[in-house]
Design a protein around this nucleic acid. Structure first.
Length: 409
RNA sequence: GGACAGGUGGCCGAGUGGUUAAAGGCAGCAGACUGUAAAUCUGCCCGCGCAAGCGUACGCUAGUUCGAAUCUAGCCCUGUCCA
């Protein structure tokens, strides 16, 4: 199992992407013989994907790096249903318009990770609404439905958990796994797709797709899942401070994105470097071996590399220099949130709200009362404090990490 | 259609007439310690207000009561079992 012949599996193995494989030997053989088209599905539940989806995106990138063809499947059709997997409650149904606009917005991110085009190993993007929307119920039941055993479906974790917890699972959601399986089969027909990848929670769906493809067409296809990514302290990746860590620029400023990686847990640095950057493994080994506070250097590299990939070179450089100026120098950087102040004076409360460090006046006051608010590095404990700018830029901070700039206008 | 159980703050979960803006936990924010790390300890954690206070809030609606998350009725939703 350890020694793969194919570049693909070796690459995935050594960088930590593999959790489960459906047929390691078969896939290894296939991948060493020629181009393997492989896909991963993404649900358009929001206008942007977040860091939690990044393993999958990187997986497609690795696929292309290893000389194969990545297929990005947008779940424009399945998104109308919602994955029941492990959710506590039924997802609210999204309107068709929302889905369409989410699909369009998510699309842009992939261009940074993959090379699209018409060549044999160029990436393509497809939307399962293209075929799912047109399905006719009776023909679909006859062709596809006959291959599914309800007994079996009930035994899948995604469904079982919902039932065990005595939570409702609508028939609509129950169908999700069938449609997902159908996607694989459809992609195998349309694009000769041989491989589906996904998070470990997708295992059941992937296996279903493989079986359906075999039963309907007698074709052999494969599946790979990635480990469920959590941070070292056990939290799901991609949810922090002010919510999710979005990939799209308009959903999260590059500086905040950079900071997310800069603040990674020590124990995660090596793993993240392998998964989310293209740095060579020996370089990563050197970085993750750094001890104590030296590891901070590795975190900067991590932040730079990931930001470069997701947001571009310029964004990464700007974020780094802002961070350096703000933290090391105690100064200001261009990327910090900025508030234009009229009239040369503003109350500390309004400044904190204006910079987005507090969501309400009460919250701002509590922050001040708790000693977390600083003006030019000096703690302010009086919530009626007024800041006078005198034409200068003033630095306002919430805690030690969140900094912003007041500028007079 | 019937019987039973249930719907509480971002989540989990106590609370069964006033002392309940609602125990506890998780998540989050801040402070101390540090390395913009982890762990630990401390404070905060519906909104407005300097405050007294006011406004909202316990599925929805209408009641009973001086007073309801707590009682009554109807409705909606969920689960389990029965038809």
């Amino acid at each position: 199992m350890t020694q793969y012949k194919s570049t693909l599996l070796r690459l995935l193995e050594e960088r930590g992407y593999i959790h489960q494989l459906t047929d390691a030997e078969g896939l290894d053989k296939l991948a060493s013989e020629g181009v393997v088209p492989g896909y991963i599905g993404f649900d358009p539940t929001a206008p942007s994907l977040h860091v939690g989806s990044m393993v999958q995106i990187m997986l497609l990138r690795r696929l292309q790096q290893a000389g194969h063809k990545p297929i990005v499947l947008m779940g424009g059709g399945t998104g109308k249903i919602g994955d029941p997997s492990f959710k506590d409650d039924a997802r609210k149904l999204m309107t068709v318009d929302t889905i369409a606009s989410n699909v369009a917005s998510i699309r842009t991110v992939f261009e940074r990770f993959l090379t699209f085009g018409d060549g044999p190993t160029d990436a393509v993007m497809v939307d399962n609404a293209d075929w799912l929307d047109k399905l006719e119920y009776i023909p679909f039941l006859r062709e596809v439905g006959q291959h599914f055993s309800v007994n079996r479906m009930l035994s899948f974790d995604s469904v079982k958990q919902r039932l065990d917890r005595e939570q409702s699972l609508s028939f609509l959601e129950f169908n999700y796994m069938i449609l997902q399986a159908y996607d694989f089969r459809e992609l195998s027909e349309r694009l000769g797709c041989r491989l589906q990848m996904g998070g470990s929670d997708q295992w059941g769906n992937i296996v279903n797709g493989i079986e359906l493809t075999r039963r309907m067409d007698g074709k052999e296809v494969f599946g790979v899942t990635t480990p469920l990514l959590t941070t070292a302290d056990g939290a799901k990746m991609g949810k922090t401070m002010n919510g999710a860590v979005w990939l799209n620029e308009d959903a999260l400023p590059a500086y905040d994105f950079w900071q997310y990686w800069r603040n990674a847990d020590d124990r995660d640095v090596g793993r993240f470097l392998r998964l989310f950057t293209d740095l060579p493994l020996d370089e990563i080994a050197r970085l993750e071996a750094l001890e104590g506070s030296e590891i901070n250097a590795a975190k900067v590299v991590l932040a730079n590399e990931v930001t470069k990939l997701v947001r571009g070179e310029d964004a990464a450089r700007a974020a780094e220099s802002t961070a350096a100026a703000t933290f090391a120098g105690g100064g200001l950087g261009d990327d910090l949130p900025t508030l234009d102040v009229e009239g040369g004076e503003i109350s500390i409360i309004d400044a904190l709200i204006g910079l987005g460090f507090a969501g309400s006046r009460g919250e701002a006051k509590r922050l001040v009362a708790g000693g977390g608010a600083r003006v030019d590095g000096v703690a302010v404990t009086n919530d009626s404090h007024a800041i006078t700018l005198n034409g200068n830029e003033i630095r306002v901070s919430s805690g030690k990490k969140k900094h912003g700039v007041l500028r007079s206008r």
